[in-house]
Design a protein around this nucleic acid. Sequence first.
DNA 1: CTACCTTTGTGAAGTATTTCACAAGCCCCC
DNA 2: GGGGGCTTGTGAAATACTTCACAAAGGTAG
Lengths: 195, 195
Amino acid sequence: MYLRYMEGLDESGQQTASSDELAQLCGTTPAQVRKDLSFFGSFGKRGLGYPVHELTEHLREILGLGHAWQVVIVGAGKIGSALAEYRGFRQRGFEVVGVYDKNPDKIGLPWGSSTVRDIALLAEDVKERKVDIAVIAIPSDDAQDVVDRIVSAGIRAILSFVPTQLHTPPHIAVKTVNMAMELEGLSFALTNRAD
Amino acid sequence: MYLRYMEGLDESGQQTASSDELAQLCGTTPAQVRKDLSFFGSFGKRGLGYPVHELTEHLREILGLGHAWQVVIVGAGKIGSALAEYRGFRQRGFEVVGVYDKNPDKIGLPWGSSTVRDIALLAEDVKERKVDIAVIAIPSDDAQDVVDRIVSAGIRAILSFVPTQLHTPPHIAVKTVNMAMELEGLSFALTNRAD
DNA sequence: CTACCTTTGTGAAGTATTTCACAAGCCCCC
DNA sequence: GGGGGCTTGTGAAATACTTCACAAAGGTAG
């Protein structure tokens, strides 16, 4: 989050930013900003604030964004499609190098400059070309099987749009995005707000 | 999350579930499950566990899912499109009643049984037909303007796919889904994992 | 009806996170 | 070069969250 706003400030040419300013941008508190950043080092100058450009670089380094990551998308449906075309990915150094599906009707369909490939080919493909992250946008029922394929292919990070708990070995990094759950959170807020 | 798994157990016909079983499903601990549920009431039976069907109903009630919520989608791009067709929404009682955009090229395009409407018409439309939640999938630059329109139209909950902090009055419920940020979290995990 | 096995609900203890508050450091101006 | 106004970095205090551990029930079998 800090990186997002630092990039914005950097583009706008601002030289320094105080923890107060960052806190306002991010919707948090100055003390929180300082504690968070201090965990990784001492980036600010007392009396001045944080040097915008320098901190941006530091954050990128910390997050491991110094080089491009290779991403495959599994699930050639609507969501997978939207993701594959999402410009934010490439912009931030995530390169979509392949799209896979289980469904024979979808395998072989054109997809950008390539085609949708059979999920069964994933393990082989990964041998040829390094893949760092798999994004899965598939039905819940197929998810565990696909995750197992991903893991045994040697991919160690998964971004999941599947609304069920996935079973993975501990060395696999998993992040889940669950839109239905977010909406239900809003439903709760609407129902229980103090009027 | 509990609701998700309770529904699954209910469909499979299971009568009761222990905190231990729920914890395994959800990837948490039995104590956590019991504390969480106890916040809302005393649903279990000692020695037996939680009655699956009954708890499912309770959770739905707690989350305010007793009736359908009316949702509009703002942003007729790829992501908005994927969202509008996402079956999970309707399945869980979220009804998409309109799609809006700012871009004149997109306004008027057919969309399901309706068409994409001008965001400027939102306030009027809301007077005719109650809208509970706005989902925004638009460029960052347009976001604050659109949010202001949504808020002044009287909508009190927003699900945002915009990667910037939105400025809203405190009585508005906002949830943000930020895919780039999730990927960067994976990048961090891959970079800093203990090998 | 009692003994015993199971599992909840929950204070208390243990961790983790956030906020406070202030010394230390930097810059600028006189 | 020294004083004053800012702002960081960080221990300590406050708050929040998670886990422990056990009494209180419910069920069952004999």
